[in-house]
Amino acid sequence: MNVAPYAAVAMQLTARSTERCADTAAARAQILSHIGEIEGAIRTAAIFIEQYAGRPVKLAVLPEYLFTSYPGRVGIAEFAERVGFAADGPEYAALGGVAQRLGLFLAGNAYESDRHFPGFYFQTSFIVAPSGSVVLRYRRLLSMFAPSPHDIWDAYLDHYGIDGVFPVARTEIGNLACVASEEILYPEIARAFAFRGAEVLCHSSSEIGSPLATAKDVAKRARAWESMAYVVSANTAGISGTVMPLASADGNSQVVGPDGKILAQSLSGETYTAFATLDIEALRATRRTPAMTNSLARQRPSLFAPVYTAANGQAGNAMLRDGEAQVPERGDFHRMQQAVIDTLAKAGAI
């Protein structure tokens, strides 16, 4: 099926922390209210973008943890209970209604609970189709302060398999995948999705905005070129409801083309100005043409497999005991990383 060119927009919106909510009921009510509020912003953006660019908006990407902000020092199980989206919960139903009424794909990021792993939460990037159904949920694999599917690897694979670890949604607007926050800094994540057919990487982030080239800015362009894929990266327009200065994570939302060139970029504040036309058929033609710039065709994964296999890094199943998932304490994440650093130092790698 041919894909007609369409517009994608990175919605730069203010994340709203739930830390000042009196209880779980208040936090849940605030989340649902916030989901309702974004519909008008996206609808208005889509109208102006189509008038300006002459292309309908078929994809809108929301920032990282837009509806809750980060957990801070709240315990894993407590945070999962307080704000974790259930797969069949009212939050996804509300997001599905937004996507359905607007007639577009809606990508975003939230903390998600899982009935298979009570007490855990996973930072999850999701894509909701115009039908209202969630067609992709990707759980963040590389995180400093949150559980990863890799921490309970064997049990996680039993439930979801490798397709649930690196999901790609094959849709009428192209093959979509999600990269969460800091994971844009790691080429392996984007490359894995590219090898599984991803053409558009939806990147939800909450990061420092700067007129200087930040690490994430550099990485977004690199991941686009390496993967021969579009990157639609939505940053927060600050985080409200915390003692942190509002604009600490604000600005630089952008759309990057498969050649690594920035097609559009926002400054600070709430805005829809990071939008661009995505031409999926042109991308597919480029991927199928022999050239020095065809990074996918020139890559040799088996060449590097032995080095990766032998490398010392964070081991899987760190939170499994006798096959059962054990909810970690906040301090465990620091101790796990320190153990890796010690191992790398002994091996002479650092």
Rank of each mutant, 00 (worst) to 15 (best):
H116T: 02
A86H: 10
A41N: 12
Y111C: 04
E64S: 15
L62H: 05
A87T: 13
S69H: 13
S113M: 00
G108Q: 02
Y92F: 15
L66Y: 11
G96C: 07
G89D: 10
I31C: 09
F67T: 09
R82E: 03
P63C: 04
R101E: 03
E81Q: 14
V74G: 01
F85Q: 02
T44L: 11
A87Y: 11
E50C: 07
L59S: 05
F67I: 09
F120L: 00
G36E: 08
A60E: 04
G72K: 03
E39K: 12
Q51E: 14
I31N: 09
Y52T: 14
R101P: 09
G72R: 01
G96Y: 04
L32D: 11
E78Q: 13
G96D: 08
L104M: 04
V61N: 08
E81I: 02
Y121I: 00
L106R: 04
A99L: 03
D88P: 09
A99K: 04
A107M: 02
A94W: 05
G36N: 10
E50M: 08
G108V: 01
A29D: 15
F67E: 04
R43S: 14
Y111N: 03
T44P: 00
R82N: 06
Y111A: 03
G103A: 01
A60R: 01
L106M: 05
A29Y: 05
V74D: 07
T44I: 03
P63G: 05
Y65G: 01
D88T: 12
L62F: 08
L95P: 11
F120A: 00
I31M: 14
A53V: 02
V83M: 07
A29V: 06
G75D: 15
L95M: 15
I76Q: 12
A87C: 08
L104P: 06
Y70L: 13
V98N: 03
E37N: 12
A77D: 14
G119Y: 05
G119S: 02
E91F: 09
G108F: 01
A80Y: 02
A60L: 04
T68P: 11
D114H: 05
